[in-house]
């Protein structure tokens, strides 16, 4: 994959970040997520210690950092999949720290997983329908009253079909999700997350284990999510990908935010190069020299 291809989808033409300053903990003009003093330690090791972080609405924000920097832990904390030691965060002005995973999802912040969680022995369509919210038939008593949820089910199926069409999985709708390839599972997981109609979508390493041919299409899906007004926060390792599509990059190292900024700021940030890029010879060089 060449980096120019990625650059076609780059966001340099419009600056969605308004006047945000490229410094750790910088304030944004319209933050959808604001986190303060988020801490998590395992035994003596402090995995996450984020003083202040804001995520701008309607942007693609990347969370990067060396292995063990606490990216995934931070992700789990924000989405209610791990217990926090201390800290508060709000989502769309609503306090959501202390909420459990399903409550966070209902608030409109939906996540995917690094190791794809396709529900293997269910059909692709059933996977999708699970994402729909507020289903009357999902209550135990409601389940017996088919007329109560039939029309809702039909509407959900229609919406699922549209999403499957968009993610090019429509021909697979009756197949077991376990028969999909790794890349298709990533697409399914993303489409399924969209079924919940989230305002913010959190992608944990969406490109991990996906063959290069599919990476392009995944990237297009991510940028089109933003273009529809959704906020995307994602963890990723591939620097080309990150530099290409992110509006904003947050760098974590040893659990702390050490830098924030537009891709161009991060490329030239000496601290980042030392902490992260410098530590990995090849990527470090390409990051330093900007466009190869």
């Amino acid at each position: 994959m060449s980096s120019d291809e990625v650059d076609t989808s780059a966001a340099v033409d419009v600056d969605r970040m308004a006047d945000a300053l490229p410094e750790p903990g910088s304030s944004k003009s319209d933050p959808i997520l604001v986190a303060d003093d988020v801490k998590r330690s395992f035994g003596g090791l402090t995995a996450v210690d984020v003083n202040h972080l804001e995520v701008q609405r309607g942007t693609i924000t990347a969370l990067i950092g060396p292995n063990g920097a606490g990216k995934s832990t931070f992700f789990n904390l924000l989405t209610g999949f791990d217990r926090v030691d201390g800290g508060r965060w709000t989502f769309e002005g609503q306090r959501i720290n202390g909420r459990r995973g399903h409550q966070v999802a209902r608030a409109g912040m939906v996540r995917t997983f690094q190791l794809t969680k396709a529900l293997t022995r269910m059909t692709v369509l059933d996977n999708m329908l699970l994402g729909a919210q507020g289903q009357l038939g999902e209550r135990m008593a409601g389940a017996f009253l088919r007329p109560l949820w039939r029309s809702q089910e039909r509407a959900n199926t229609e919406r699922a079909m549209e999403l499957l069409e968009r993610f090019k999985l429509i021909d697979k709708r009756q197949d077991m999700a376990g028969s999909l390839s790794g890349g298709q599972r990533k697409l399914l997981e993303m489409a399924r997350a969209l079924m919940t109609d989230p305002s913010m979508i959190m992608l944990d390493e969406p490109m991990a284990g996906v063959n290069p041919a599919l990476v392009q299409s995944l990237l297009q899906h991510i940028t089109s999510l933003r273009d529809e007004g959704k906020t995307v926060l994602f963890v990723e390792h591939d620097m080309d990908v990150i530099m290409g599509i992110s509006d904003w990059i947050v760098v974590l190292a040893q659990g702390q935010v050490i830098a924030e900024g537009r891709p161009s700021d991060i490329r030239s940030d000496q601290q980042v190069i030392d902490a992260y890029l410098g530590a990995q010879e090849v990527e470090g060089e390409s990051g330093e020299s900007g466009d190869e």
């Binding site: 989405t79 999949f81 459990r100 995973g101 399903h102 409550q103 999802a105 209902r106 939906v110 996540r111 995917t112 997983f113 969680k117 396709a118 529900l119 293997t120 022995r121 269910m122 059933d126 996977n127 329908l129 699970l130 994402g131 919210q133 289903q135 009357l136 038939g137 999902e138 209550r139 135990m140 409601g142 389940a143 017996f144 088919r146 949820w149 089910e153 997981e189 399924r192 997350a193 079924m195 919940t196």
Partner: peptide, 29 residues
Amino acid sequence: WLLIHSPWGRVIKGIREDEDAVRSLGKNV
């Protein structure tokens, strides 16, 4: 049969496959 062929049944089958995925979709597992 009625339960399994309803959205309720879909949720519990999802839990059988992977409960974290179902939780991430807003269901109280």
